[in-house]
């Protein structure tokens, strides 16, 4: 059983993390070039009009007053309205539209990473110093070393341009019209019972998921290998074998659970990279998630959208790590101590 104290302690850390991230974003935005008032009014607007826009947005107040107002609004989840990206629309509404797209991509990437990383890591540990192990380790190192902005265009070049078997961008073919019920395209196509649309979505998401998954897989398999190698040397593993238990059963029954603890940690920590990766992946594959939203908002000095998007990223990251901590303490109750 997880103690409430443990969860409460972890939840309490959410406050400082979000405060810190909000403060950094506020500082960076106000140090970076670009005036939102000019961006809204247009380059040819008169100085009076620009001043008027600035007054309306409260940008003529001293920065410390803007900061206090920003903290107050953030604390009440009042992110305001978009200046530019979707002018006049509530930032919360924009995020609600875009967030499922990014979450779907991140989850699929993580699942792909786990599906391939775990067996590869186990295989590599069990067959230590064999050809399988060497190939697996080289694969893991390659996966960690290749940046998304390079692997993405390479995959597009191979599968879309040369082989012509996969689409280059988007989430679904332009001939399919699906009502967005959940925001997750795969779920929505299934709910609509449109298998052709589902297949189109799978084909569109294949490359982005592979790009995200390879990076994740590399980390997970490397961690799984080192963790499993440590576990198979433990006395309880030898005891289980001495009692006549088969090698496969010993590994699956006694080794996996213990070896899995550090891997769970990696999944949590690495989720941050995954979110950062979605920004690049969405940009490369032209997917309208919050990654591309963030890039457009930065380019257009849309302060409320940038601030809210980064806060959402930070919140998701902290939440995933809280979940990881809880899972961790279920697998090994000593962690709570």
């Amino acid at each position: 059983m997880i103690s409430k104290r443990f969860v409460a302690k972890r939840l309490l850390l959410l406050g400082p993390v979000l405060f810190g991230v909000a403060t950094v974003v506020f500082g960076i935005l106000h140090l970076s070039p670009g005036d939102p008032a000019i961006a809204i009014a247009g380059d040819r607007a008169s100085q009076e009009f620009i001043d008027q826009v600035r007054r309306d947005l409260g940008l003529d107040d001293p920065l410390w007053q803007q900061y206090l107002r920003f903290l107050r609004d953030t604390a009440t989840l009042e992110f305001g309205q978009s200046y530019q990206v979707r002018r006049g629309t509530d930032v919360s509404a924009i995020l609600a539209d875009r967030l499922p797209i990014t979450i779907e991509l991140a989850i699929l990437g993580q699942i792909a990473g786990l599906l391939f990383g775990l067996p590869l890591g186990i295989l590599s540990a069990v067959k230590k110093d064999t050809l399988t192990d060497h190939f697996s380790r080289i694969g893991a190192l390659t996966g960690i070393s290749i940046p998304i902005y390079w692997s993405g265009p390479l995959l597009i070049l191979l599968f879309a341009q040369i082989l012509g078997v996969l689409p280059t961008s988007g989430r679904i073919g332009s001939s399919h019209f699906i009502d967005s019920r959940t925001g997750f395209i795969l779920v929505d196509t299934l709910l609509a019972g449109d298998m052709a649309a589902f297949q189109s979505a799978v084909r569109h998401l294949f490359m982005p998921v592979v790009v995200l998954g390879v990076y994740s897989m590399a980390f997970i398999s490397r961690m799984m290998r080192s963790s499993m190698l440590e576990v198979v040397r433990q006395d309880y593993m030898r005891t289980a074998r001495a009692k006549g238990q088969g090698a496969k059963t010993t590994i699956m029954k006694h080794g996996l659970r213990n070896a899995f603890i550090p891997v769970i940690t990696i999944i949590g920590i690495q989720f941050g990279s995954m979110l950062g990766g979605t920004v690049l992946t969405e940009t490369v594959f032209e997917i309208n998630g919050i990654g591309t939203l963030l890039v457009s908002a930065i380019n257009q000095s849309d302060y409320p959208v940038v601030q809210a998007t980064v806060l959402v990223f930070a919140f998701m990251y902290t939440l995933v790590n809280l979940f990881v901590d809880i899972t961790y303490s279920i697998l090994d109750p000593r962690i709570e101590q």
Binding site: V24, G27, L31, I266, N321
Partner: peptide, 30 residues
Amino acid sequence: TAFALGALVLGFGVTAWSTAVGLGRTIEGM
């Protein structure tokens, strides 16, 4: 500008501090 620079220092410090508290042991172990 001075305030924005200070906000960067403060924000970075608080974020990193809370990350160290929350994930520090984990990172050490990893």
